[in-house]
């Protein structure tokens, strides 16, 4: 193996961390750039998945062992609860105002 390419070809913890950083930033981009509330929800799911990749990678490569996947399971549970609540809120908002645009949902601004 070419020694210059070694850091790129031996997949380690850093590769997974960089990948999840990129996913995290894409999620932030979706949260800020989307005006549709479902698009924002998609961004949040991307962010939670990025966090999970981090947890599992740390569990695999450090001495955390199975604790990494256990924490990821709790994150998945919370993501499921959050998705259910968010979509119920969206349906309720759609019933009230006929749209899921976040620019129009400004009643609480006062």
């Amino acid at each position: 193996m070419n020694p210059a390419l070694r850091p790129f070809l031996e997949i380690g913890l850093t590769h997974y961390l960089v990948l999840s950083s990129l996913m995290f930033s894409l999620g932030i981009l979706a949260m800020v750039a989307r005006r549709n509330a479902i698009g924002v929800l998609i961004g949040i799911e991307l962010i939670l998945n990025a966090a999970n990749v981090n947890l599992v990678a740390f569990g695999r490569f450090t001495d955390a062992g199975p604790q990494g996947p256990v924490f990821a399971i709790f994150v998945i549970m919370l993501a499921a609860a959050e998705a259910a609540i968010a979509l119920a809120l969206l349906l309720s908002l759609f019933e009230r105002s006929g749209s899921v645009s976040l620019d129009e949902a400004s009643e609480l601004k006062g």
């Binding site: 479902i38 599992v56 399971i73 998945i76």
Partner: peptide, 29 residues
């Protein structure tokens, strides 16, 4: 990453559950 249980959970919960919720949300609104 060697986390077999989590891979299956990911498919069941995200691909099977949360995605269905999001698609329902898209279709209903």
């Amino acid at each position: 990453l060697g986390s077999d249980f989590l891979a299956v959970t990911q498919v069941i919960v995200y691909v099977g559950g949360i995605m269905i919720l999001i698609v329902f949300g898209v279709l209903l609104t």
